[in-house]
């Protein structure tokens, strides 16, 4: 017979839940609904005149070629960052897991970039690749490659992807390493006795057992690429050249906070929110099925 524990007091469970619900309401539902409401308005910056315009802002938004371009740019950027950050962190974690001497120092060093703020990370990479002063740009030129990300959209994209990836690798690395160390040694040893080489062992044992971690990181990385990278974009390219790195969240920031187009900016953040919610639902609904817990 199933054993159930039930609260006798009917109010107590609600009381216990209240803090969590209050936090959700105040920090998520309230601002989100404000954004939703704001997206239906057209307002001057000072809030002196407000008109309810129904879906005008949305129609405006999707009729802009540069917004559609921004969607495309965001897709390329997010996928590149997520794939690169996950795969390189996994590679580093596998290597770190095998290191016997100085493992501590090696791991600590790999974790450092996570402590760097996005804007600072951006500035760091910008210094390296500044077409006039950057040392990396200088080396590239010595090799006969003309580096000028202020005009070449492909190079600008590469630069922000690398900077955003570099910052996220540490986080992924930590989780992968922890996940790997949780895999029972006996399984790997048994496979080794059966004659499986390191590569085979990785793909048949380690990787499947890491899927919960990988899945979690995939969700986190997509959210990171969508929301947390605008500091990097702001300090490195400001969305340029010619909109080549103008990702959605950066456009929201620029139109709302720099250009004071509140309605338009709120509209964009509603669209962005919808996209990320949709992504997360899809990931949980379909990708999670392939996860072995």
């Amino acid at each position: 017979m199933e054993k159930r524990v039930v609260f006798r007091n009917p109010v107590l469970p609600y009381l216990l839940l209240a803090p969590q619900i209050a936090i959700t309401l105040i920090f998520f539902i309230w601002p989100a609904s404000q954004a939703l409401y704001q997206s239906l308005l057209q307002q001057d910056p000072f809030g002196l005149r407000t008109t309810f315009v129904w879906a005008d802002n949305f129609i405006d938004l999707f009729s802009q070629a540069d917004y559609l371009n921004s969607l495309q740019v965001t897709t390329v950027f997010s996928i590149s960052v997520a794939v690169l950050a996950l795969s390189s962190a996994l590679y580093l974690a596998v290597q770190a897991d095998r290191v016997l001497k100085g493992a501590m120092a090696y791991r600590t060093l790999l974790i450092w970039p996570y402590a760097v703020a996005p804007v600072v990370a951006g500035v760091l990479w910008l210094f390296l690749f500044n077409p006039t002063l950057g040392i990396a740009a200088y080396w590239l030129r010595e090799l006969g490659y003309d580096w000028n990300h202020t005009l070449n959209g492909g190079q600008a994209m590469t630069l922000v992807v690398v900077a955003a990836t570099w910052k996220q690798i540490s986080y992924n690395f930590l989780f992968f390493l922890a996940g790997m160390q949780a895999i029972p040694r006996s399984l790997i040893e048994a496979a080794a006795i059966d004659g499986a080489g390191p590569v085979r062992r990785f793909w048949t044992i380690v990787f499947p057992l890491l899927t919960p971690t990988t899945f979690f990181l995939l969700v986190i990385n997509i959210v990171y690429a969508f929301f947390d990278t605008f500091g990097i974009i702001h300090s490195v390219t400001e969305g340029g050249p010619a909109g080549a790195t103008n990702i959605l969240v950066y456009k929201v920031f620029r139109d709302g906070f720099l250009n004071l187009d509140l309605g338009g900016s709120a509209t964009q953040s509603v669209v962005l929110m919808t996209i990320v919610i949709a992504f997360t639902v899809i990931q949980f609904r379909y990708v999670e099925r392939k996860v072995h817990y």
Binding site: D66, L151, N152, G239, A242, D255, L258, N259, L260
Partner: peptide, 18 residues
């Protein structure tokens, strides 16, 4: 909202320079 138009001009000029 001229600040916003300047952004637009920057983008289009960059497209021209490129």
């Amino acid at each position: 909202n001229f600040a916003q138009t300047r952004d637009v001009i920057y983008e289009e000029l960059e497209a021209i320079w490129a």
